[in-house]
Design a protein around this nucleic acid. Structure first.
Lengths: 332, 332
DNA sequence: TTGTATGCGTTATCAA
DNA sequence: TTGATAACGCATACAA
């Protein structure tokens, strides 16, 4: 592989000078600069970023760890991150965890070895022990959507509490009194906040919570399907159901169809997080949506700001959710 | 930062030995190995992969360049790649090009600097000059979905030609005679093959092509919208339309609604590539789908095989498309 | 303004 | 089986 030493030789200067030209530093005479650049162009030389990261202590790399890149919620966020990052010549390394702790640990280990400059993570964990222990304290960390316990770090999330209230308000206004709820993954902050918001909103409307109407889920389709089947099997099923995220709603949808029922005639269904493209094809599912692309961009910026030195205390950015009314809930 | 030298000192051995332990090499006595590993564990030492890549000449990194990670077609492919890669301790660096040549060039340059071990790319270019010139010839290259001219490399794609025929056969069987076509991005192999397949199929059915029924597109929503508006403005609009990819179909859908028409009552619409989740919510759009997740996995494997030495000549993997019949086309 | 020398954290080579 | 020592490709302090 050709190195700056080879270039130096060809240009009749020292390697240091070549380095200076490449990095656009001052203190290089216009003549030598031109001389070096000519060789650079002619040879099509590409400096080795890994080598330079060794001395610079920066890899210009930011790691993104999410449960599932296939979920449009995360896809859009990643897009937002990538846009910001690549505009600043920073690469994005991607990791899927599949909501699996071991995979998450593996990802953390890996990105540490690669010395990523920053980490943006939607963690699958309830507690942050594994994060704090795997991650060196210096590396900028931005929590996305979810906040594991025991960790002070930047956080970009939406107002889940308020989102839940919007959903319940909406359903109550339509006349629903028995509102089922499929919970999110156990131990995840987002899941808890959404449940709490739901419970509070019920209380506000003078509707005592009915334990039987609250079933567990895992933020995945399968969990949503099982949860919905459980609700439908009730002696007195709810007239509508809220799922804790978009994927669960898809599973619930499948369950409902499986039972030969239809939405919203037989049962209403709403959820957290939009389906993006899916909602364009057929504006069907009523949801409270988060400004996903923006969230990604914000997360990237928070990370990059820390990179550029300005050390600050943990910041929390809370976005507003929007109710997108479509056709999956009816008046009763 | 602590290095293997520090570990060596603490363990009372040389750095070389520490390196051997870390890399699980032979020729380390069980006792010293245990001694070193104890220190490794106690300190939570994480080796610097960039430094090691310097000598090993491998970064354990594979770059993926796609037009838009937000398109479920690519999302699923990336998922397939990531699964394969991370199983082999290989990281995925992600780049969006937005169908923009400059961004693609930037991505190529960047991944070269990072010395990615391999590249999987769905190129936005008609010609591969910029790829061959930016990329060193040694780095394993897998073309995804699209094949720019002037480049011999591994290729993973689907049988676009055949897919087009399936679509036309299907529509003709429904009684359609005026079949509109919104083309893909100019100069992209996939776009060309799909158009050719369409034309041939028409001929097979004794339907001469009507120039007015073929409009241009760009593989993006906006292009699909404009194309469809053009078709709808015709004195004698087609009874059905094929778009060259899923995004264009979404745009076409918007155009149709904008004109106050509905599918499939007023006009039928089918396309290449599935919408994944969208099709789960509401199985609406009839498409010919590619086995996306698998394609990603295959692409990753082709790349990794080359990495592991077994040099071979360019391979081409052609997948079969599947017609997924849904509700966006009606009998006439 | 330029060059020399050294270090960044590993691995590979060669002796011991 | 282990340890010096020299790369790997680049950046930087220091000297010139």
């Amino acid at each position: 592989m050709t190195s700056i030493y080879d270039i130096a030789k060809m240009a009749g200067v020292s390697a240091a000078t070549v380095s200076r030209v490449i990095n656009d530093e001052r203190y290089v005479s216009p003549e030598t600069r031109e001389k070096v650049q000519k060789v650079l162009r002619k040879t099509g030389f590409v400096p080795n970023a890994n080598a330079s990261s060794l001395t610079k202590k920066r890899t210009n790399t930011i790691a993104v760890v999410v449960p599932d890149i296939t979920n449009p919620f995360f896809t859009e966020i990643i897009r937002g991150i990538e846009e910001q990052a690549s505009a600043q010549k920073i690469a994005v390394i991607l990791f899927n965890t599949d909501e699996d702790m071991d995979k998450e640990r593996g990802a953390l280990r890996f990105l540490m070895e690669k010395r990523a400059d920053a980490l943006i993570i939607a963690s699958t964990a309830s507690f942050a022990k594994h994060i704090t222990s795997h991650l060196s304290a210096e590396i900028p960390l931005v929590l996305l959507d979810r906040q594991p316990k025991g960790l002070k770090a930047d956080l970009v999330r939406s107002d889940d509490h308020r989102g839940a209230q919007m959903l319940v308000d909406y359903l109550v206004a339509l006349g629903h009194r028995e509102i089922g709820f499929i919970k999110g993954k156990d131990g995840i902050s987002t899941a808890r906040l959404r449940l709490e918001g739901y419970l509070q909103a019920l209380e506000k409307h003078g509707l005592g919570p009915d334990e039987k109407l609250i079933v567990s889920g895992d933020f995945k389709q399968e969990g949503g399907r099982e949860g919905m089947l459980k609700l439908l099997a009730l002696a007195c099923p709810p007239t509508c159901v809220i799922t804790s995220n978009n994927l669960e709603a898809l599973g619930a949808l499948a369950a409902i169809r499986q039972m030969g029922l239809s939405i919203p005639e037989d049962i209403s269904l709403v959820c957290f997080d939009d389906l993006e493209l899916a909602s364009q094809v057929y504006p069907f599912l009523t949801v409270v949506a988060q400004p996903v692309r923006t969230m990604g961009a914000v997360a990237a910026q928070l990370a990059l700001e820390r990179l550029d030195g300005n050390v600050q205390k943990p910041r929390e950015v809370v976005m507003q959710m929007t109710l997108l009314e479509r056709k999956s809930a009816r008046r009763v």
